[in-house]
Amino acid sequence: MADKEANLTTQTPPLAPGSAFLTYMESGFPQIAGWPGQPSSVIFMAHFKELFERHGVTGGACEIGVHHGKYLIALHNILAPARSLGIDVFDDQDKNVDGSGKGSYDLTRAYVDSFVADPDSVALMSKDSLTLNAADQAEILAEYGRFAFFSIDGGHTAQHITYDFFLASELTSPYGIIAVDDMFHPDWPGVTEGILAALATRRSPFVPLFLTRKKLMLCHFSVAKPYHDFILGICRDVYKFDPTMVTLCGHAIPSLNFGSEY
């Protein structure tokens, strides 16, 4: 286990030095408050840019539960020059019913302006995700198209997670990735309860792809096999180890250990 953890925490940049993403990871990421996981687990996500390009995916990132934008900026900079969207109750904390994080619109906007090459390509929406309806979804699709990355990190109740997952399923490209934060976290059992309940309905075409200590990543069922093979290839060819395989909801998926991520 120690050798695998050491391999994964070796930061092997999949993007060229000087890219907006790597510049942000070196200088901006450490400055912003938030809990997106180890830098190495965030850097690992940049490998998917190659896969997205292979499938002609041009969408940006969307995140529900932005906090101060730490993870959203990283995902956006991987996908730039695509357009991205952050959704959060921000300063309307009366709607933060479970106290999961405390977003700030002004801080997030300032960090986006500082660490995104084209700040106008990232929009922020002050909204409770539970109030987003079919008309709102259609408006988002018309404005942004389908997203390549969709991060779910808003309300941590089972109700929030289930609703946000089905919303993400509608707004994410069939070649995209959905990330569910705080999976199996002992302080937030609603996350695990909510996503397992959602997956059990089989209403979404998105299925488990891989786990970290902090997040569950999901992809469209139709690309699960090639995406699974891609991840195993990255682990073996870049990080030089075979990941531990686990079974979740009937899917055998890699469990990647980036060390303590909370």
Rank of each mutant, 00 (worst) to 15 (best):
V116P: 03
F44Q: 03
G101A: 09
S40C: 05
F115W: 14
E50W: 08
K95E: 11
S41Q: 12
I87W: 07
D98H: 08
F90W: 12
L79I: 10
I87N: 02
S114E: 13
L85S: 04
Q31R: 15
K102I: 13
L107G: 02
H68G: 07
I87Y: 01
D88L: 06
D118M: 10
E53H: 12
I64A: 06
G37K: 02
H55Y: 12
H67S: 05
R83P: 09
D106C: 04
G103L: 07
P81D: 07
V66F: 12
D120S: 15
D113Q: 14
K95R: 12
D118I: 08
V97C: 05
E53V: 06
P36N: 00
A74Q: 03
D98T: 09
S41G: 04
N96A: 09
V57A: 11
Q31E: 15
N77T: 11
V57F: 04
P39G: 02
D113G: 14
E50P: 03
A46I: 00
R54G: 03
V97Y: 07
E63N: 05
S40T: 04
I43N: 09
I78A: 00
V66R: 04
G37E: 04
N96C: 07
H47M: 06
F52C: 11
S84N: 05
A82I: 10
N96H: 08
D118K: 13
I64T: 09
P39H: 05
F52T: 06
S84D: 11
G37A: 05
A74T: 05
T108S: 04
Y111Q: 10
F44Y: 09
E53T: 08
E50Q: 13
I73D: 05
I78L: 07
D118V: 08
G86Q: 00
E63I: 08
Y71M: 15
Y71H: 15
D88S: 08
K102W: 11
A74Y: 04
V97Q: 07
D98F: 09
R54F: 11
Y105V: 07
V112Q: 04
Y71C: 13
G59Y: 01
K102Q: 15
S104T: 06
V57W: 03
H47T: 11
D120K: 14
V57I: 10
M45H: 10
V112W: 02
I78G: 03
L79A: 02
Y105I: 00
L72V: 12
Y71G: 13
H47V: 06
E63S: 01
W35D: 11
A82C: 04
L85Q: 13
A61R: 08
T108P: 06
G37Y: 05
V112E: 02
D113E: 15
N77P: 00
